[in-house]
Each structure stands twice: as structure tokens, then as C-alpha cells.
Design a protein around this nucleic acid. Structure first.
Lengths: 232, 232
DNA sequence: TTACAGAAAAAAATACTATTTAAAAACCAG
DNA sequence: CTGGTTTTTAAATAGTATTTTTTTCTGTAA
């Protein structure tokens, strides 16, 4: 069997199974045996096993001889894996995880902004500025404005010089892209350009405290917004 | 071929290859082909491919038909995967990543402590207290004291109620276990029980600000300590 | 005749299929 | 409770398919 979209069969199965797992599809029935999965998806055992192995590398399942494969408890899932988080956020009723992720951003991004102010990585700071400029330029076009907003936040992570912060790029990119569907329910929400600018200025001046506080202000706002949506 | 230590062959290869990759073993030569790996490790192609697929699920490598498999640039590695981080920290000359990880803890743990104070999850708070008590009881036994210290910090993540924080448990556990080798070089370093206690008290009182600041104090200390080791 | 462009063929690597054997753990009969 | 049976994943083996790079060939124009 050949896969449709340039995606290899194993990766296609990875995505399909991953999404099914996070939506709880196997909670009642238990995870199928290799043989069952093969007939269900019309794939060879080898490919199936490769997909299963990738899922277990992400903490979603585990296999043992004779016992079969089972879905791991949620606390073993690697939430900080970009794929896993995306599957979770794409699933219906994912409001809670958006709020929890926003809380984590509230811990991370202000720290990253402060580090960026100390780090003074000129090219990275230039990227932050470009992001802000694009936000201003495309204020009327939601799609472009969102992209610019994401670029701005991600550029700060990069400018922090800390690879752990930088590694959150795909997670935050996904989360912001998807959270639009959530926050659009709140009438006319738009990114606060003034607030973003004050982060940039502080970083450029090397003022870590102000950078941290300005970043915090934006993210507190974001957490509150998502909290409101959740309540509604 | 059977593997030695109860670990399946595929997982054994995952670890071996993962460690080799992060130590830069393939930087010059490029990643071997499937066939070469099979002869090198005496494994079948099937298991080899399963190991390779798991590594690619963690972002360390990527494979394409005809082109072979290559090591991904570091910024694509999933640093927040417990395995990947452990491999990185176990490798020689890993001082820098300990410092960077400590910076991330400095962002996360105070936020977790603050959330824990608000969240008031009684069983989780009891675990924090148990960790502190064990620290006191085993003050003279480095191994047990370290274990208690780790339990204390991890329990705070749990008490925060935020699964993203909680997910850092294996990362922090590993990091603290390994960082002992680093910080022991600094004469007679020991965990500050007073400081730990003040976090617990603040969390129990629901005083989020004090919890955050107390946690911050400990972690700033930790960052400074690791910074000193690095300089030495 | 030479140079070059384009097409066709070959090669090299992973992707996938199929099948068999091994090992482990649960189950069941006695 | 012991020992064999069964089920399910683990691993090995062999071969086909697919993709993409590289090479080779060929025809045409200078």
C-alpha cells in the first residue's frame, strides 16, 4: 500500500494512531494487537511495528510480549513533544490544555525575555523587531498578523540563547495557530502592539526586569482570555 | 541476537545510537546506511529500522529514500525528551547544558510553586512535606538526602496541577542525579533546608508570592553554583 | 568534430511486504 | 502448584517497490 501525500506509511500511521490515542478511542476497548491493527489499516506488520515504536518513543503506549500493547496513563505522555501536543490541541474539548499551556508560557516567556535582554544577540533581536514591524504592517490582515505575532514571540525564545526555550518554538507556533479558533470566540480580540513594543525596547536596552514584566503582562492577559473562553 | 539486560534489542540500539549521536560520533563520517549499521551492531534490519524510527521520532535523525539517514541539526533535537536530555547530560563536556537546564528550572519551578500555593492539592502538598522531612532525616547521608531533595522539587511540580510542569519530572530527576557529579567538585555543597522549608510553608499557607520568591532563591543559588563549576 | 542539452538507464538507498522462528507471560488442566 | 499450551510481541530473513541521484547515451547545433 502506498500513502497519499508524500508522507510515508509509517508516519501516516503514527499520526492516525496518535490522534486516536489522545482522543481516547482505545480507552474502553484496549489497544488492538499487531495483527488487528494490520488488518484495520491494511499495512504490513513491519510498518505497523515501526509506527508503534515511534508512539512508544513519545510515551503514548508500551508493548510487552504476550501482554500486547496498551495506552500509557496520560502522565507518561510526552506533552512536550510537538506531535503529542498538537494531537492534544487538535482534538475536540481541548480548552483545558490550552489554558495549561498558556500557564507554562507565562513561566517561560518572561524568563526568556529577561535572558534576551542580557544576552544581546543582535541578529536574534533584529528578528524580534521584524516580527513587531510585520505585526504593525499587517494589522488589518488577521492571518499575516498572527504569523507576525508568532514570529515575534518565537524570536524572543531564540534571543534568550537558551536551547531549552528555543526548543519550544514548534509547540508555541502550533498552540498560537490553533488557539485562534478559541480566542476568536471572544469578540474582536487583537494583539496589543504597544505591549509587544515595550518588550522589544527593554530587550534592546538590556533592561531585563522591564523585559520580563512586559512579557508577563501580555501573557497574563492571554491566560485570562483563555480562561474566559473556557468559562463560556 | 538477544540483548543483555532485560532491555529489548531495539531499545538497546536506541540508547547506543542516541548516545553516539549526541556525542557527535557521526559528525564527520555521516550516519551509516542501514546495511552498515546492521553489520556494525549485528542486528537485523527490522530492529535496526525500529531503532532508527524511534530516534527520528525524537528529532535526532531523519531518513529519506535514496539519500540515506542523516543526523539532524541540534536545534531539531527534542531536548525536552527525557532520553535525549539524559544522553546529552551523560556525555563528557556537558557543563553548558546543565547551566542552561538550570536556567529553565529557574523559570519553571517558581511558577510551579506559586501555582501549587493557589491549587491547594492536599495529597500533593503532603508529598512535598514528606520530601522535606526526608531531607532533614537523612541530612548526613548524601544519597538519601539527594533523593529526598529530588522528591521535594518534583512534588511541587505535581502540586501545581499543571501537567506540563509535572511532565518535567523525569528530566529534573535525571538532571539532579547527574549534576551531583558536577556540584560535588565545589567543596561541601548541601541543600539549604531552611530555604526549602520556607517554600513549603508558603505553599501550605496559600501564599503564592512568597512561594515563588523562595523557590527563586534556591534556584538562583543553583544556577550560580553551576556557573561557578563551569568557570572552574 | 565538438559541445551541450535532454532523455534514458543504472544505481543506491530507504520503504514496504511477507513469512518464519524465538521468547515471554498468561492461562489452564491435572 | 506444576507443567504444558497458547497468545502476543520480539527478532530474523528474504525479497519487492519506490524514489532520487548519478551516469550514460544520443541527437543536434555550432
Amino acid at each position: 500500500m502506498r500513502s497519499e501525500l508524500g508522507v510515508s506509511l509509517a508516519y501516516g500511521l503514527l499520526a492516525t494512531l496518535g490522534q486516536s490515542i489522545v482522543t481516547g478511542e482505545f480507552d474502553k476497548t484496549g489497544f488492538p494487537t499487531e495483527a488487528e491493527l494490520c488488518v484495520k489499516f491494511g499495512a504490513s506488520r513491519t510498518v505497523m511495528r515501526e509506527a508503534v515504536k515511534m508512539l512508544s518513543a513519545k510515551g503514548l503506549i508500551s508493548s510487552r510480549q504476550r501482554q500486547g500493547t496498551r495506552v500509557e496513563p496520560v502522565e507518561n505522555w510526552n506533552l512536550l513533544d510537538p506531535d503529542v501536543l498538537r494531537w492534544l490541541m487538535e482534538r475536540p474539548y481541548s480548552n483545558k490544555i490550552f489554558l495549561e499551556f498558556a500557564q507554562m508560557r507565562l513561566a517561560i516567556e518572561p524568563a526568556a525575555a529577561a535572558l534576551a535582554a542580557e544576552n544581546q544577540d543582535r541578529p536574534a533581536i533584529a528578528s524580534i523587531r521584524e516580527g513587531l514591524q510585520a505585526m504593525i504592517d499587517h494589522a488589518g490582515q488577521p492571518d499575516l498578523a498572527l504569523k507576525a505575532d508568532i514570529d515575534f514571540h518565537v524570536a524572543i525564545l531564540k534571543a534568550s540563547g537558551n536551547p531549552f526555550f528555543w526548543r519550544l518554538k514548534p509547540l508555541i507556533t502550533n498552540a498560537l495557530n490553533l488557539s485562534i479558533q478559541l480566542t476568536n470566540k471572544i469578540a474582536g480580540h487583537m494583539a496589543d502592539i504597544q505591549a509587544h513594543q515595550s518588550i522589544l525596547v527593554a530587550i534592546e536596552k538590556g533592561d531585563a526586569d522591564t523585559a520580563r514584566r512586559s512579557s508577563e503582562a501580555i501573557l497574563v492577559e492571554s491566560v485570562n482570555l483563555i480562561g474566559k473562553v473556557q468559562a463560556a
